[in-house]
Design a protein around this nucleic acid. Sequence first.
DNA 1: TTGTACGCGTTATCAT
DNA 2: ATGATAACGCGTACAA
Lengths: 344, 344
Amino acid sequence: MEEITIKDIARICGVGVSTVSRAINNHPDINPETKEMIMRVIKENNYVPNNSARNLKRQDAKAIAVLVKGINNSFFSQMIKVLEEEIKEKSYAMVLQHVDYDEDEVEVALKLVKEKRLRGIIFLGGYLVHSEEKLAQLHVPFILSTTGMLPKGFSRNTYSSVAVDDTKESYKMVDYLCKNGHKDIAILCARKTDASIGKLRLEGYKKALKDNGIEVREELILPMRSDLEDYSLENGYMVTKEFLEKQIPCTAIFAISDMLAIGAGKALSDAGYKVPEDISLAGFDGVEIGKYVIPSLTTLKQPVDSMARETARILFDIIGKKAKHQHCVFDGELVVRDSTMPRT
Amino acid sequence: MEEITIKDIARICGVGVSTVSRAINNHPDINPETKEMIMRVIKENNYVPNNSARNLKRQDAKAIAVLVKGINNSFFSQMIKVLEEEIKEKSYAMVLQHVDYDEDEVEVALKLVKEKRLRGIIFLGGYLVHSEEKLAQLHVPFILSTTGMLPKGFSRNTYSSVAVDDTKESYKMVDYLCKNGHKDIAILCARKTDASIGKLRLEGYKKALKDNGIEVREELILPMRSDLEDYSLENGYMVTKEFLEKQIPCTAIFAISDMLAIGAGKALSDAGYKVPEDISLAGFDGVEIGKYVIPSLTTLKQPVDSMARETARILFDIIGKKAKHQHCVFDGELVVRDSTMPRT
DNA sequence: TTGTACGCGTTATCAT
DNA sequence: ATGATAACGCGTACAA
């Protein structure tokens, strides 16, 4: 039951360990026949190199890590797919690492860099606000993708970012609702303590109302419940249900994520409201399931494919010293489907 | 920019490396004051131990890996959450590893064991059918959870498993539909090449029809398209759309996963059919979103929480030598919601 | 209680 | 083209 090592292979083959190492790592200076023989022996003995030892010794891992905040976020999974393609294309390895909501992603990144000799890091989601100091220790190029921005003070030439302008896109959606005659628009938004995208999207909402001459009313601002999972279906459902029970007049609900919107849609239906005839419903993100829900969901779609591709491009440019850090803002797309209608 | 190591810490503190090591790893034989001092220096210098070096040296990692087939499977994410709780509870570390659809999970497991000195492995999903030989090399207890069974020939006392009886549960659903007067029941199922749960669920369908005196008709068996992602919304939508265009009479559609069912529901709606009045629709798995979809989805719910807890229990029992390998079959629950109705 | 020295499995730098 | 050997950073006997 002994674990077999490179030494065993060398002994069996009657060669030195360095020769085996050369065979494994596709080094040029090796006799093709020797290599073939070694590879055969490796197969026969089911030898698997120890990655810890490799990482320990190696400088150069040709790996980039993707740190995803939270699990089961269907918005990210599409991005991950694309990132994986792009990373493989450059013949890099992708290390996918989930980070719990209560974990510090920068700390995780720091560990990972030491362990895996990464060349770059992609942060997907999360709010790196409190981590400036730690971020400075990250001596590896990193890029924030679809992530709450860093505070203004943080030097913008030490990292890159790719995202939509949450305020602007949120504005777009609410403005659309206003232009379609809606005046009493509720927003299903982040908790008051949120300092990230949730806050920005709320600001867009407020600004759009003001620009359309509509008063912002506290009673129409519906923060998520903190005792339920953030951005979850259940949260959207419960908050909407409680809101509807108050019977506050309202003709449209804008949820700052599609999942919240779907939860809200169910609450509306359960309470006997027809979407969109009685109340219009809009989401944000543009996740796939929004197309399949009934009625299909009007949303503000983030161009995830392009964003993922751009994320990879920027990171590789920096790794290859082809460019400096940059900050790329994408436009979202207002996708009008069946869950909203004009108000006459 | 030099990476700081345990030696540096030792030097700064004026102690030996072993003392630092003891401080880090909470060893008993150490002066509390020395320890405190060392920990302070570690914080000040942002020292992060190198995991590769640790894993290389250590025998005993107190870690268990969860290998998940595919990404973005909302059915698994609930299980993962529970597994994480259970594993943390035992003060083990959980290593979450996604495995691509075209990757061999056993190969990934083999590598991971070498790299991380795992104590146990949980396979979530996937079909380990072709990997008997490799599985034998896995000298670490493993358990298959929610996974297509291994072939009969494989010795059942070398591994554990937790799952529902897919054939039986599928039968339950189809039998329910039959008992409610449905005779023309289409099934949205796996590709013909599938040898895993897809096959079993199809068998349950056939058996239920026969037992209810209904003929199995090929034209009502709708395999997923191979050019689209397996079990995806889009696959359910497209296959159903194409089926409906053929105008084959049918009063119910049973999809072997909830996601397929939701896709199918949209195709029905687009084609002008009312669910459940015109056609009843049922899914399988019991994912959360099924509750929020309109009409809410009748489904065969797998008891994911209990299954995850049992998975962890069994694995830890084996690790602790408290028990031998075992195979646990859970009952699913028929959850009747709004997407099905009797046929008179 | 603490420090020294060795080895974990691999890659890289030398010679040869 | 190949082999011996020194690191890589850490944990742990063993000695002190």
